[in-house]
Design a binder for these strands. Structure first.
Lengths: 349, 349
DNA sequence: CTGAAAGCGCTTACAG
DNA sequence: CTGAAAGCGCTTACAG
């Protein structure tokens, strides 16, 4: 029983012949939405099994007038947060019959702009764009009519749906955790940019203020990129310039927190004894570094699912049964998050 | 100047009409390999630009008899090594006209086996399978005729091409580095499995022995998974059982090294003062942890390029000009690597 | 439900 | 090079 590499793949007509039904019936069973009786359905599925039929997606997509491909754009695929998000998007998209074309922006405005203008070499059914720098106006004004969903930390008011977690609420939760463990001088690495919507950094600030405590400007540092290097140098600069060292530090990402810890260690400060440190994202390494990182864990699968659903809503019903047509994009979608407490904010050491 | 979302996309015939040539000529310019005069070529490209034409890949693939899709299987996409490898594969595949369908095995034998048997919901032009556990015999005996390339740390003798770095040579380089910095009692977390081909762990052992030094069995520990947790517990167990602490530790991955450092710290040992630590992979966090990690950096882009080329060689010429036909798979492909020295093996602290 | 057929937008022999 | 046409394997109105 050898398998000939060159043997032609079974087609829909082969299945129809074996099952003794019409092509249309097979097509309906395979994915169309016309009602098929249970008996016929079973007969067709048995025939599919027998000849080992798999639909040719190129033909299906050609006939349906869609490409079957969406693009997913992230800053970099070697950032675990975006990598695992990409994994979840690939899964969620697959359940809607989509392949995912991966793109990387490099993490700067220029790369995001290029992705938005999307000079893709092929036609896309939609795009999911993870952005840190693009403004809502620029997103709204794009010339390309391809259905779009935006992911990222800041809400994007306007016609384009946005999926994210409630960063302000997460920042509040971080503040409450640090305050609950007795910390009072809280530093913030990755300050909110002026004029930005309230995000995780603003949430932290509001949470500290709500407890009647000040947020000292000299403990609040912006960074240019969410990398370990940027976190390390911003923290080192802060430590060099401040009179009294903070007793807690909130970094806007885990990677930034890892850099901050390097700077604290270089100054001879122990974590968490002298300074409690919190990150954000719950990357897989958060539990492996020394000390392990307390962090906020966004529900990546929920983000991915919402994003694909928001895209599907714009594309409109693909199947005959979905006769609702393209729905209006509907703004803001929030996914859940969780506070994960580990050693870096512990009181034990 | 509004863009109608519903306006029909330009087709090949539209380009042909504008350029005043035949469909076939346009097709040849777009990707066929029949010779076209420079003047005609320029006329066609101008027309493509004018009507903003993009080929419909579903139609092209249907006509060419390929799906335009290859599958890439990795343990997990949130492991930065595999994530950045995936990014490189996506790029390299794109240059050959392929989309990449991402799969994750979860990192166990069962997941790899399922990927190998490949019950994919669609037809694939090829598969790139990153494996840690599958044996060469099982890979060679697969029933599925889809062209396959295997990635991973152990060579796979047999008909299926394998791409990787020379792990044994990398292990030798690691040993030489540790010995050159004066270390003599070298521990190994992630021992070679019995009967396995010589890999990075065996390379380290051979390098130490070549210097006339013993490799102590009690300093050589296997682990069940290349995670931080596994590295931490294996290292902790070793430290608890050994009479004299090692002065260096080689971990088979950076993540394992991060766990090992946690265990060393828990025992009050300083890195690198008391114990030098080396990892493997050069994940982005290797430079952000404290202390930053000395490691081996495989050339991921070279791995990705070789893998896609090895796949292309099996699929055979897609374009009319490539009339060589499917080439015989040709075994082992090695990509370069680099030793990156950072703080964790430094002598400065 | 069936059957026969048009159409999706390409590629590619074929005759000129 | 051109022109006219078949074919890739689906989906889907159309008449029954």
């Amino acid at each position: 029983m050898t398998t000939d590499r060159r043997s032609p793949r079974p087609r829909l007509t082969d299945v129809a012949a074996v099952a003794g039904v019409s092509m249309k019936t097979v097509s309906n069973v395979m994915g169309g939405y016309a009602p098929v009786s249970e008996a016929t359905r079973a007969k067709v599925l048995a025939a599919v099994d027998q000849v080992r039929y798999r639909p040719n997606l190129s033909a299906r997509n050609l006939a349906r007038g869609r490409s079957g491909v969406i693009a997913l754009t992230v800053p970099r695929l070697d950032l675990p947060y975006f990598a695992s998000l990409a994994g979840s998007v690939v899964e969620a998209a697959g359940e809607h019959g989509w392949f995912v074309l991966m793109h990387q922006t490099g993490g700067d405005l220029d790369g995001e702009r290029r992705a938005l203008l999307g000079d893709h070499p092929q036609r896309l059914d939609g795009m999911i764009l993870s952005t840190q720098w693009l403004e809502a106006e620029e997103i709204a004004a794009r010339p390309d009519p391809t259905p779009l969903v935006v992911l990222g930390d800041h809400p994007v008011p306007g016609p384009v749906p946005h999926v994210g977690i409630d960063n302000h609420a997460a920042g509040l939760a971080a503040a409450q955790h640090l305050l609950a463990t007795g910390r009072r001088r809280i530093a913030l690495i990755g300050a909110p940019s002026p004029g930005a919507e309230p995000g995780r950094a603003q949430g932290l600030i509001d949470g500290v203020r709500a407890a009647g405590l000040p947020v000292l400007p000299e403990l609040t540092r912006p960074i240019t990129a969410n990398t370990g290097d940027a976190g390390e140098s911003a923290t080192a600069r802060m430590l060099a310039e401040v009179d009294e060292v903070p007793d807690a530090l909130f970094a806007v990402t885990d990677w930034v927190a890892m850099g901050a810890i390097r700077a604290l260690h270089a100054r001879g400060l122990a974590v968490p004894r002298d300074v409690a440190v919190m990150g954000f994202d719950d990357i897989p390494y958060a539990r492996s570094v020394s000390p392990s990182l307390t962090t906020i864990a966004p529900d990546r699968e929920a983000v991915a699912r919402s994003a694909v659903e928001a895209l599907e809503a714009q594309v409109g019903g693909v199947l005959p049964g979905d006769d609702a047509g393209p729905a209006a994009p509907d703004g803001e979608h929030f996914a859940p998050f969780e506070l994960v407490v580990r050693e870096s904010t512990g009181t034990g050491i």
